[in-house]
């Protein structure tokens, strides 16, 4: 059934089977491949996107559930916080393979948007759902702290 979603500020009409997770609609139907598939069960966070500003795991979110909401993916996540995060990520060379980093960045943006000066514990709890097998964790922590300082 065709439904219209608001993705990155644009209206997109998609026809996917009922229950198809948003992740596959983004990736396979709309060609937005920034959000990644890592587990399919909301365990790794690679698929994180923002729905009305809040981070969600798009791999378990039926696409019809976000009808009427604003979906933002890594490709068009911007604003002051996103810029600060990206600048810190680049400065500290956080990504290695980079595969999980879209999810890491989307989680980190939300953290700083809701908590301008997070503690270590805040970072642990906000970022623990995002697995990085290259284990860039030490730099992720520092980059979030650095980004917070610039805001």
């Amino acid at each position: 059934m065709a439904i219209t979603l608001k993705i990155n500020g644009k209206k997109e009409t998609v026809t996917a089977a009922e229950g198809t997770p948003l992740l596959w609609v983004l990736r396979d139907h709309l060609g937005l491949t920034g959000a990644k598939f890592g587990c399919g069960v909301a365990q790794c966070g690679a698929c994180t996107v923002h729905v009305d500003g809040a981070p969600i795991r798009s791999c378990i979110t039926p696409h019809e559930d976000v009808e009427g909401s604003e979906v933002t993916t890594i490709e068009s996540a911007n604003g002051k916080v996103a810029s600060a995060i990206r600048a810190a990520w680049e400065e500290l060379a956080v990504p290695q393979c980079g595969y999980c980093q879209a999810g890491q960045i989307m989680s980190a943006i939300n953290l700083l948007e809701t908590n301008a000066s997070p503690s270590d514990e805040d970072i642990d709890s906000a970022m623990d759902g995002n697995i990085c097998r290259c284990a860039t964790y030490v730099r992720i922590r520092k980059a979030i702290m650095d980004a917070a300082k610039t805001l």
Binding site: T33, A35, I74, E75, V94, P95, G98, A102
Partner: peptide, 10 residues
Amino acid sequence: TIPDIIHGKG
């Protein structure tokens, strides 16, 4: 690669 990756582009 990092400049692309942080924008979801690679």
